[in-house]
């Protein structure tokens, strides 16, 4: 030991605490300077340019139709569209992984179709789908007219008839369209999550006598959530923004549509866009915080 420490100057003294000169980073300071100038320009633009019309932005954000649109068209449609989308997606994923070839095929065709159709096109089409059902959509025995004809009877076997135009425009159509499209994307996310869980987990659960469905619900899905959650967070944010497409249905109790109509009525087209941007920023920030919390919860036992 004593021979090895002779690299120092004194030879008898053992090396002490480190006090070294750090590596200099001159380019970092250049970058800081450039960014500082850009930020100053931005602040200048925000404060001095009258076209922002900040008072009008705040006023527009405070209008009752805008706030109503925010809660119904934007937030409620996001929540419901996502809830049904996730449920449908998990169902489709389980179908895709099932032993039953018919279920596998149906899930594949569904995903193929709804991933191919752009959301806006889907929503506009839903709004116009009433053309297909001029007599409305009925609940009852399928092909009842064929059966009734064959039996030589009169009348129909329908219990409830809905107007397709009313059904698929408005809130129901909006949630239906968003959820149907979302399910196709969620199916792929859920499938990759389920496949990420080690086979040994299923085997261990089966060996304990857990039936297939219980194994999926108690063992596989909770672990798949860790893989499913981060991309689902992205989907949620995307869904939030896609509510601005609901005008295609058309759904008018929606925040962006309401802000735009204020803009065109008052000729203040730019400030209402700023107002919309601010709302989307605020909601997205809240969603991100929620996602972080969820990811911690389903990460139990992994990073612990």
């Amino acid at each position: 030991m004593s021979e090895q420490s002779s690299t120092g100057s004194a030879g008898t003294e053992r090396p002490g605490l480190i006090d070294a000169v750090p590596v200099r980073h001159p380019w970092r300071w250049v970058a800081v300077a450039v960014i500082a100038v850009l930020v100053a320009m931005l602040v200048n633009l925000l404060v001095r340019n009258p076209a922002w019309n900040w008072p009008f932005v705040l006023e527009a954000m405070n209008q009752t139709p805008v706030i109503r649109g925010l809660f119904f068209g934007t937030l409620l449609c996001t929540a419901l569209g996502m809830a049904f989308g996730v449920a449908g997606g998990v169902l489709l994923a389980v179908m895709r992984l099932s032993d039953n070839p018919v279920l596998r095929g149906v899930a594949w065709v569904y995903t193929w179709f709804f991933r191919a159709v752009p959301r806006y096109v889907l929503l506009v089409t839903l709004g116009a789908i009433g053309v297909l059902f001029p007599d409305g959509i009925s609940l009852g025995v399928p092909f009842d007219w064929v059966i009734i004809d064959a039996l030589g009877l009169q009348g129909d076997w329908r219990f409830l008839t809905l107007d397709a135009n009313q059904l698929f425009t408005g809130l129901f159509g909006a949630v239906f369209g968003l959820a149907a499209s979302e399910a196709a994307y969620m199916a792929e996310i859920a499938r990759s999550g389920i496949l990420s869980v080690d086979r040994g987990q299923t085997e261990a659960a089966q060996a304990l006598g857990m039936p297939r469905r219980l194994t999926m619900r108690r063992i596989v899905l909770p672990q798949a959530m860790r893989v499913i959650l981060p991309p689902t967070g992205n989907e949620l944010v995307a869904m939030l923004k896609d509510t601005s497409l609901l005008v295609g249905i058309p759904l008018t109790i929606e925040m962006f549509f309401q802000l735009q109509s204020i803009g065109s009525r008052t000729y203040q087209t730019f400030p209402v866009l700023v107002a919309a941007t601010l709302y989307y920023l605020i909601i997205t920030s809240v969603l991100m915080a929620g996602q972080a919390w969820l990811e911690r919860r389903f990460g139990r036992g992994v990073r612990a």
């Binding site: 080690d198 040994g200 089966q206 060996a207 006598g209 039936p211 909770p222 036992g301 992994v302």
Partner: peptide, 24 residues
């Protein structure tokens, strides 16, 4: 499936790689 699960429930199994449920 349910019948197979019942039969398995009377047999305990220990795996090489433990296969504990990591989220519990």
């Amino acid at each position: 499936d349910a019948d197979i699960a019942r039969q398995r429930s009377r047999i305990g199994m220990v795996f090489q790689r433990f296969n504990l449920f990591p989220h519990m």
